[in-house]
Design a protein around this nucleic acid. Structure first.
Lengths: 341, 341
DNA sequence: TTGTAAGCGTTATCAC
DNA sequence: GTGATAACGCTTACAA
């Protein structure tokens, strides 16, 4: 049986070019440390053989992968997509490759993915939100893999983070709602357990009620997972209360879109009969009609700054700094004055 | 200076447990080939040291990564998300990890990503659509990395594929439109160059005109990239023609959502004044109002079957088979009879 | 059942 | 500038 010819190695290239493997390696990694003529010869051999360096071997020898891993809760909605795209673009400029996996909002899956990415030699990790088993951070420290948290700003947390103050942002929005004379307010939130963003947004809404002299416990909250259908269902339940809420704060735009759809299918006018607000300002917020009044999050800025910061941590072993980004309320058509009939 | 203690290796575990590295390796990879007592001891050592196998080393020795790579054109809209999620879930069941990267619809980026993933030892690749430089397939063959194409069904193409017949699907939809007495039809397509799905959908629309005795060249087409804004702009241009089209076929739901928004902001009623159709049946199609009449694509089925097929190719060196999935038209509210005034 | 030792394909440190 | 050569951490015959 003939020996299967497998992918060409450095050695093959070296032999073909009549040089040593060291020279070939230099041609690829530090071209100026090799004389033009030999480099030409080597590159020709590389071309001719269709050589691609073996990544695993390179990693073993160099102990660097130029790879950053990111674990996001879901790819199925656009919340993280835009920020991640900017993250990737910035990394690419700096010579890094991004590997993404999604945990489906399950902590144990996230943990597994973290270990997988570390085992694969990720030079650094991007994680979403602060809530997780602290042992994971012990593990990352032992493995010396720097990690940065995004989509949430919490100073002095275990890991440096870049994001916005979810609590304050929702408080500002709720305050705006109350300013329009809404007093019967409800909220459709993402599942708050293990999700600091969701939890802080709830707290923010309560803060607003409190500051305006309303009872924070009067806020009826339904927690549900982040899908359009769930938003619709939750809306149906909340609106059946009597007297029904005149404004419904949603934990994100996807839930808000679901709520809106449900309102419409129940023959309710938004915002005349009931106001609905979103959070995130993803594309969807402008697509639905009425367009959503929501909280704009600077996704791209967050992604690119996260990349810069993380690369800095990786390359200079710095602890990483925590960065706060500003959000702003964008007023569109889904929020109007209360109709307290 | 004290030696920095780095991540524990197999050797450390072996020493701690008082066995050889081979035994530790076996405990991890073939637990039944080791006696219970020693395994206990080894596992304790693993636990105590917080050992994680070094992936690169493992790959070098075993020549398998249990990793599948996927390169999708974009993460920024939901077209690929659901199918990819199913793909990942199925792979996970089979013990594989999925690595995803996005090419931003740029062929040269896709090519680079393919090389990156191969260099990283991906055991197999999932690619979207058939249009690409054929040299890439030569390369993959040389590297012996099986690849499967999804989102497009083309028999006898260079790579096996799983998907649907884009041409036939759009033809069926256009036929339905014509059956509602539309004769002035326009199309908002994705950029067709380097995108067989977009191209075939255009062809399908023309086929329908032809079969119904209409002039296929009467189909005015605007090609644009896949974002809501582009759909809106294209709609504005098409509708300004006189007489204006009564039905606008969109290359996907995102473009359709943009067209719909633009129609509404111009005070046009859909479908009374103009009909709009989508393609893909992503969540968005049900969120907008009127909800989109569109082509339903079995995304999850496509993803999981692609995984099965690709794993089969990887594990048994089979050539892979080409699988055709069925689409169906879902009638909602954005398509109505022509108003030929 | 367990241990020994030979790779795996690079990079990096020295000499030359 | 270039060439030997020793790691890097693991898997896997083969031997014991």
């Amino acid at each position: 049986m003939s020996k299967l010819r497998s992918a060409p190695t450095l050695d093959d290239v070296a032999r073909q070019a009549g040089v040593s493997t060291a020279t070939v390696s230099r041609c690829l990694n530090a071209p100026d440390r090799v004389v033009e003529a030999t480099r030409q010869r080597v590159m020709q051999a590389v071309e001719a053989l269709g050589y691609t360096p073996n990544f695993a071997a390179r990693v073993m020898a160099a102990k660097r992968t130029f790879t950053i891993g990111a674990i996001i809760p879901t790819m199925e909605n656009a919340i993280f997509a835009r920020g991640l795209q900017a993250f990737q673009e910035e990394l690419h400029k700096r010579g890094y490759t991004l590997l993404v996996s999604s945990s489906a909002y399950r902590p144990e899956v996230e943990e597994e993915q973290i270990r997988t990415l570390v085992a694969r030699g990720a030079d650094g990790l991007l994680l979403i939100g602060h809530d997780r088993n602290p042992q994971i951070h012990d593990y990352l420290e032992r493995q010396k893999v720097p990690a940065m948290v995004a989509w949430s700003y919490i100073p002095n947390a275990r890991a440096p983070s870049i994001g916005f103050d979810n609590r304050q942002a929702m408080q500002a929005l709720a305050d705006r709602v109350i300013g329009l004379n809404h007093t019967r307010i409800a909220m459709i939130s993402g599942v708050s357990e293990g999700n600091d963003r969701a939890r802080l947004r709830i707290e923010g809404a309560r803060d607003a009620l409190r500051k305006r002299g309303l009872n924070p416990d009067s806020l009826s909250i339904i927690e549900t997972s982040y899908e359009v259908e769930n938003g619709a269902e939750a809306f149906a339940r909340l609106i059946s209360q009597s007297p029904h809420p005149t404004a419904i704060l949603c934990g994100n735009d996807v839930l808000a879109a679901g709520a809106l759809r449900q309102a419409q299918s129940m023959g309710l006018n938004v915002p005349e009969d009931v106001s609905i607000t979103g959070f995130d300002d993803i594309e969807l917020a402008r697509i639905v009609s009425p367009a959503l009044t929501t909280v704009h999050v600077p996704h791209r800025e967050m992604g690119s700054k996260a990349a810069l910061e993380l690369v800095e941590m990786v390359e200079n072993s710095t602890p990483g700094s925590t960065i706060r980004l500003q959000t702003e309320i964008v007023e569109r058509q889904s929020l109007g004055p209360a109709n307290n009939s």
